[in-house]
Amino acid sequence: MAVVFQKTKGLTDKETHYCPGCTHGIIHRLVAEVLEELDVLGETIGVAPVGCSVLAYDYFNCDMHEASHGRAPAVATGIKRVLPDKVVFSYQGDGDLASIGTAEIVHVAHRGEKITTIFVNNAIYGMTGGQMAPTTLIGQRATTAPLGRTVEHSGMPLRVSEMLATIDGAAFVERVSVDTPANIRKAKKAIKEAFQCQIDRKGFSIVEVLSTCPTNWGMTPIDSIKWLQDNLIPYYPLGNLRRPEGVK
């Protein structure tokens, strides 16, 4: 009888506050498992800004900073410049990274800052109760787009990974999803590769993870997975957009 799956030491014992079926929990697990498997938990400092994952400092079993909305990449830069040999990551939502924090994420990529960003894209502002985000799809309803987002009013949803992949300092850019066990395993592989890219000092690494928000999408967790597959994945195609040269 061998245990093949158990809770990773990369997570604390604290139960998360996330809504039932919110896939933040899966993404936390993947990051924590990767840090444990790379044996860098004791060398890692994470940064979680305002958003649903602002309480991540209670969940990741490593040193953590809580950061102001949108500024985690700058905070992470400050940490990494002081501790260049440590592993530093930021864990951010789309309301944070793709809206108020756009300058910060563009510039850590532009500087090739040797940090890793886990970018959770659920196409909505979760913590504040379902407002439209830059990643909200056309026609998708939100509390600040009650009749559904229109191009006319607020433009097309922002594809962050494609944008960042044009920046040379972004050594590793991949978009993944956590909607099926198979995709979850692929997501973990990408997250591991992203952290390895940092450890190998190749430059900035980011993994965009499509994620659900049952509460603010107004669906059951199972329907949310289905909605993600039918709507988010087509607009935000999965796959690697950039990888350091020579690494296949």
Binding site: V47, R71, V106
Partner: peptide, 21 residues
């Protein structure tokens, strides 16, 4: 380390990170 940030907002947040480290 000297680093020119992308804005004063980023700069003070880098200070926050560095100080916390």
């Amino acid at each position: 380390v000297f680093l020119q940030a992308e804005s004063e907002v980023a700069a003070i947040n880098m200070v926050y990170g560095a100080s916390g480290a």
